[in-house]
Amino acid sequence: MKHGQQGYSKTDKGGQRKKGGKRGKVGPWPRLQKFWDIRAACNFIGGGTGAGLLLVAGFYALQGLDNTPLVIAGFLSISFGLFMVFLEIGRPWRSINLFFHPQTSWMTREGIVAIPLYVSMALSVFFAGQFIGVLASISAALLAGLFLYCQMRILHAARGIPAWRHVAIKPYMLITGMTEGLALALCISVTSAHTALVPILALLLFMRLGFWLRYAHQLRIDGAPEASCNKVDDLFIWTMVGNLLPVVLLVADWWLEVEAIVVLAGLIAAFSGWYTKAIVVTKAAQTRGFRLPRTPVRGQGQSRVVGQSGFRQNQ
């Protein structure tokens, strides 16, 4: 099977031509990309969550708390994401070539950052409780932040996908990675969690909701493909519940002091971020479509300025 492209002509078997393939039924509309599926989305899910976990682990190291479970969880999360990428690519046994273009490719930069990140994680675990372990944890936290930044830039560099190219996706990707990681960190270390983590998670949830609403609003304002906007808008209830319900649960735990409530809040916060990212990568990723600014002049006819199907005129 081939993935991705496509074509609009009726002779093209791989495209998203409409049934019947009549000539008049084909056109330049934006359509869903098929190059990256849920496996690629898992890289953003695992990488973002893992980076968030390692940021919390760095904070724990500074506070003198045991962070080994968080580092191991971060390691597993990031490894899961990278393994899914390994499954996604067409020639996985050439993966070493990934490191060849640090000059401009954020995917290469992500891969390069992953190497010292793994070393830092390993040192952090092997020297847990020692000074070198603390240093390694801090190093891992800084590198995890860089890893998360690279992931954000990977999405933004895709000029063919307006929903990813939009500038408002960048802060959302950063904040949701941190939120997911902190939420899982609370679940993992619920009995010994630092007291500051709960209000920080609540703050991050509010920020994440705000960035998401801004992204959804700006995407439509800036004329992204209608189908992309609709997919993002469909997540409105989901994001409201996924961000506000954990806050409500965290507030409830303040009175009730039941650990299970914190765990539930953390799981909801993390899962809502994962689902949103999965939708952004696999469902809201419409291409730009083809643009025909003017019709050609033929015979006695006149040229007309035209918009673009799937886009509004202001795109």
Binding site: G90, S95, N97, I154, A158
Partner: peptide, 12 residues
């Protein structure tokens, strides 16, 4: 080429 598909997503 490793077939990651990133180029295809960057191509408008």
């Amino acid at each position: 080429c490793i077939g990651c598909g990133y180029c295809a997503l960057a191509c408008p």
